[in-house]
Amino acid sequence: MSGDGDSSVAEVVERELQLLSPAGRSSRALAEQLLDPEFTEVGASGRSWDRQSMLSALPVMEGAADDGPRYVPSEMTGTVLAPGIVHLTFETLLDGRRDRRSSIWRKLDDETGWRMFYHQATPVPDA
């Protein structure tokens, strides 16, 4: 990958890391900037989320408190699927629990920038 693809993936990785941080999870204003209006998620629990339910829940979910457990991401890679569409895959560790994650980000215009359109988390079973 070269040129615009590299910068698109780098921007999306930066935004994904913001959503994983306590600051990103506890700030509704920041989360509103990062989640697409049509956002959906299938969580590690199997629960389906839409944008409004996620915005309400993020501040009280694990990983939102400065003094609590934090997400530790690893193996984050991204692929540009089409202009304005990036797919990220990675793993997270949070308080001893590992999940495999997949996010699709889209950029509709330069004003709003990259926003998470879809996310899925799948628990990694103990070895």
Rank of each mutant, 00 (worst) to 15 (best):
E62Q: 10
F90L: 02
M1I: 10
D66H: 14
R97F: 12
G63N: 01
Q52G: 11
S7L: 08
A64C: 09
Q120A: 10
D95M: 13
R106P: 01
T92Y: 01
G63D: 06
M1C: 12
Q18I: 13
L20A: 05
A23P: 00
R70V: 00
F117Y: 15
R70L: 04
L58Q: 00
M76P: 07
P73F: 04
D110C: 08
G84D: 15
S45K: 00
V86N: 00
T77R: 15
V42A: 01
R101N: 09
S7C: 02
R15D: 05
G78H: 02
H119G: 03
Y71S: 02
G24I: 08
T92H: 09
E62N: 08
V80T: 10
F39K: 08
Y71N: 10
R101C: 04
A65D: 01
D50Q: 07
R70S: 03
R28W: 01
D99Y: 13
M54W: 06
S53I: 03
G24R: 08
A29G: 12
K107T: 05
S45E: 05
Y71A: 05
P59N: 01
L58F: 02
D126Y: 10
A64D: 05
T77C: 04
L108D: 01
D109F: 10
A31W: 07
W49A: 09
S102T: 13
S56R: 09
M76E: 11
T77N: 09
A82W: 14
E111K: 06
P37D: 12
E16K: 13
L19D: 04
R115G: 09
Q52V: 10
R106L: 02
F90S: 09
F90D: 09
G43S: 08
T77A: 14
R98Q: 12
V9D: 01
V80H: 09
S2C: 05
S48P: 02
G96K: 10
L17M: 14
W114N: 01
E14S: 14
M54I: 07
S103A: 15
G43Y: 07
L20C: 07
L93I: 13
D67A: 04
A121V: 03
F90C: 05
E111V: 06
T89G: 08
V72R: 06
A127Y: 06
P125H: 03
P37Y: 14
A57S: 11
E14G: 08
D6I: 12
L108K: 04
A121R: 04
A127W: 03
I104P: 03
D110E: 15
L30E: 13
P37S: 06
S26K: 06
P37L: 11
E38W: 00
F39M: 05
S56D: 13
